[in-house]
Each structure stands twice: as C-alpha cells, then as structure tokens.
C-alpha cells in the first residue's frame, strides 16, 4: 500500500507543481537556476598570436532572479555568476591556450506582459569580468590578463506554452555591451613594465560596440520535472576588444543543461 501511494505521489508531483505555479503570480516568483555548459570556443588575442585558436569550453552558471518593489513591482533583479575554463589549440595544434574567466552581472528588468503567454523584459545590466589566458609556448608574452567592467543593455523574451500537458517556458536573453572599460597592455608593452617597473599607462581603455561588439545570448527551455524544472539551452558568448591596436575575441557556443527552482516568499500572517 505504501509503495502504491509513493508511486501515485511521484506521478502527481508534476501536476501539483503545475497547479502551484498557476496559483502564484509569475512576476512575483523567485527563481534559482544552476547550469553546466560545454561547447566550442574560438579565441584570438593578437598580443599572444595572430592566429585563431579553437577548442572546448566548460562553463558553470548560477542565476538568481527575484522581484523588487520598483515601479509597482514590475522590475525584477537578475544576478548571474559564470565561471568558465577553456582549452584551445592553434590551427596546427603546436600551441595551446589555457584560459579561465569569472563573470558577474547584475541586471534590472522591467516587465511587459504582452499576451498571457508572452512577456518581454528589458533593462540595464552591470557586468564585471576577470581572468586570464595563457599560451603554453610564448616566453616574455606568455599570458594576458582579462579585466573588464561592462554597462550592458539586457533584454529577455519569455514565452510559455503547453506541450504534452506540461507548461514549458522558453526564454531568450540578449545582453549587449553599450560601454565599458577593459584592461589591455599597449601594443608591444611587456607585463614586466606594467607590474615589475610599475609603468602601467594607457592600460585601462574604453570599450564600446563601435570598436568591438560584446554580447551574450542565451536560449533556454524550462521543462517541469518534479518540484523543479529541467533547463536545456544554448548560449552564445561574444566578447571582443579592439584597443591599443590589439585585437581579442572569444566566441563561444555552449550547450546548457541545468535545473531551475522557483518559489515565492510568503510572509507569516502576523507580519502582513
């Protein structure tokens, strides 16, 4: 009897969670998601090599979305932390790049409920990035420090639809750099001059779409699975700079898999 009840409970979980979702205003939901991505990476850094390196990237993404009280509660805050590691090779496989980067971004999104199933969100985003890229063959120019501060425009389109009696949420997000600051050595400047002799000048540069486009696109599908949701998606990261006559690009395509947990904070009755 116990076993039958347990099986019934498992079968009912998706239905119960769906019913629970519908009873709560989706705009007031908090959402925590964790994703792991793997995919291809194309890197160029003319300080290290004029050639493009290609290989594999692994990325860990943690996203938190929570509602705010701004503009009658129509603004939500999105906090994303990403950590990635990539291993790429030169066209002839003689040389390798090892790179690691930590990204943090914070966005405020205003929501427009276009139709009951479709909502659009847009707003400003602040991003910070830090890490480095190491060339396994070079002598005095073996690595590049990556530091950047971005001000982005961020937009999302969220569409809910039914498939196999399940409410599936499709989401597309685009973050586009409007202006930012990046660290870069000068064209032929050594890190010995910058750090050992403390002669760093012109190393903090202005970055904008007019010098190099930087954007992040993510398309995900959230499929209810028990009390959580399974998230499948793809991410395209384009990070580029063209400053101090040096060019860099990181073009990444990733397949994402992860889970999403949504919940709503309910205040105790005596505090309402």
């Amino acid at each position: 009897m116990h076993k039958v009840l347990t099986i019934l409970l498992f079968l009912l979980i998706p239905i119960l969670s769906f019913a629970q979702e519908n009873s709560v205003n989706p705009l007031s939901l908090r959402s925590h998601s964790t994703m792991l991505g793997i995919g291809s990476n194309n890197q160029l850094d003319t300080y290290l090599s004029p050639l493009e390196y290609t290989g594999t990237e692994v990325r860990f993404i943690q996203e938190n979305i929570k509602p705010t009280r701004l503009l009658s509660g129509r603004v939500s805050m999105q906090n994303i932390i990403q950590a990635n590691f990539s291993y790429t090779k030169s066209p002839t496989k003689d040389s390798k790049y090892l790179s690691g980067l930590l990204d943090w971004s914070l966005a405020l999104h205003y929501k427009w409920q276009i139709t009951p199933a479709l909502r659009i969100m847009a707003g400003p985003q602040l991003g910070m990035h830090g890490g480095g890229i190491y060339n396994t063959r070079n002598g005095n120019n073996p690595a590049q420090l990556r530091l950047a501060l971005d001000i982005n425009a961020s937009g999302l389109a969220v569409y809910q639809f039914q498939l196999f009696k399940r409410s599936i949420e499709a989401r597309y997000q685009l973050d586009f750099l409007l202006a930012g600051m990046v660290f870069s050595p000068e064209y032929g400047q050594s890190y010995y001059e910058i750090f050992s002799l403390d002669q760093g000048k012109h190393n903090v540069c202005f970055n904008s779409p007019f010098s190099a486009v930087t954007a992040n696109q993510m398309l995900t599908l959230d499929i209810p699975l028990g009390t959580a949701k399974l998230r499948l998606g793809v991410e395209n990261v384009i990070r580029q700079t063209h400053v101090n006559e040096l060019k860099t690009h990181d073009w990444t395509w990733l397949f994402l898999v992860g889970y999403v947990k949504q919940f709503s904070l309910i205040k105790p009755q005596h505090e309402r």
Binding site: L44, Y110, A122, F210, V213, A215
Partner: peptide
Amino acid sequence: IRRALEGLLLCAFTVTLSNCVTE
C-alpha cells in the same frame, strides 16, 4: 522606453554583423 529598446536592438544587430574582431 520600449521604442528606445527596439531601436537599440536594431542598432545592436546591425553593429554586431558589421563589427566582428578578426585578424
């Protein structure tokens, strides 16, 4: 704001297509 965002997105796509950094 909505109109501005539409314009921004259009501008972003145009710039993206024409501004890939390559050597």
